[in-house]
Design a protein around this nucleic acid. Structure first.
Lengths: 173, 173
DNA sequence: TTGACATAGTTAGCTGGCTAATTATAAGCT
DNA sequence: AGCTTATAATTAGCCAGCTAACTATGTCAA
């Protein structure tokens, strides 16, 4: 994803506003800030996980499995919960299987389905990663008071509910 | 990037808190919400750009070029401003060159450097894309009052300044 | 001046996203 | 039973990120 290291300053935005008078500089700044903070945090998380030879995609799959009472799920359910295509999930599971963090086997009922289970090694990997993860997230968010944290979430949710405005149609405004 | 479609609910977080007592559920929820909103907006932007056969990486390069008075820069400067490696920039420029949205030529001075310029076609592409982009960003942020918008940015900046906590060391806390 | 180091860009090979097509199996109709 | 349609997973091939290694060129100091 775009890293947006170099958010335009007011001068540059003004130049663009000359070309594109519909630009609302305040909105653009806030939007780009949100994208940048999100991508920077995501990258920071990736760097942390990389110490354990994990990346976000694979780590998230292990977490999804750990949520299950029997530590088991199927590729298509995992794909949906992780928000990736089934093809992508196939690739993630291949990698996890190579490292023996999961195992796959056929279920009894539907012979199209494959069952995916967290192995003891996979659980051990999570036990290595998670305490440091929680510690870092706590430290990160400690900069906000509880009230600020809840307000942030409320503001983010509001924007999130508006994301459909990017979904084409209605250029007529 | 991870899509985080399925943020854990309180029940699941409690289960994890049993395993990992250092977990601060409030912090984790806020952190994951931030990541999710960022990635969803990024994806929404990508979908909008895809209508014009652009993606964020290439679109951002065109914008960086348009900022320059002579519409010209070099691959390494563009890479730094876009926050990607020079290798990645080479690939992005290859794609833009294929579509004739930019042109490349050698400068006089340093024969290692290559100059990259926005072409008329590239400018025309931006003129297609930008009005709708600004319109959508405005609509997105209209959900917030001006005060809320500024508060959001302030909260995001605070968190952003704390992102170093993911940079390893200091597990001792 | 020439040897060492630095810098600009590319290439190769990896990861992890995607869509579209393919294979196998299941389910439902007639 | 046999068709059609739907679903589960994989494969192939694309894009865009990365690091490491390489080529070419520039810089600087002995």
């Amino acid at each position: 994803m775009l890293q947006v290291k170099d958010i335009p300053n007011a001068e540059i935005l003004q130049k663009f506003a000359d070309h594109y008078p519909q630009a609302d500089i305040e909105s653009v700044m806030a939007f780009l800030t949100l994208l940048r903070v999100g991508s920077d945090l995501s990258q920071a998380l990736n760097l942390y996980l990389a110490q354990f030879e994990l990346l976000q995609g694979r780590w998230w799959v292990l977490l999804l499995l750990m949520r299950e009472d029997d530590l088991t799920s199927t590729p298509s359910v995992l794909a949906e919960k992780a928000g990736v295509s089934r093809a992508t999930m196939t690739g993630l599971l291949d990698g996890l299987l190579r490292e023996k963090l999961i195992k796959r086997f056929h279920g009894k009922q539907d012979r199209r389905q494959i069952q995916i289970s967290l192995t003891a090694l996979g659980q051990a990997k999570l036990n290595q990663v998670m305490p440091g993860y929680y510690l870092r997230v706590s430290k990160l968010m400690q900069i906000l008071t509880e009230a600020e944290s809840q307000q942030l979430m409320a503001l983010l949710e509001k924007i999130h509910q508006q994301r459909h405005v990017f979904e084409n149609q209605s250029d007529n405004a």
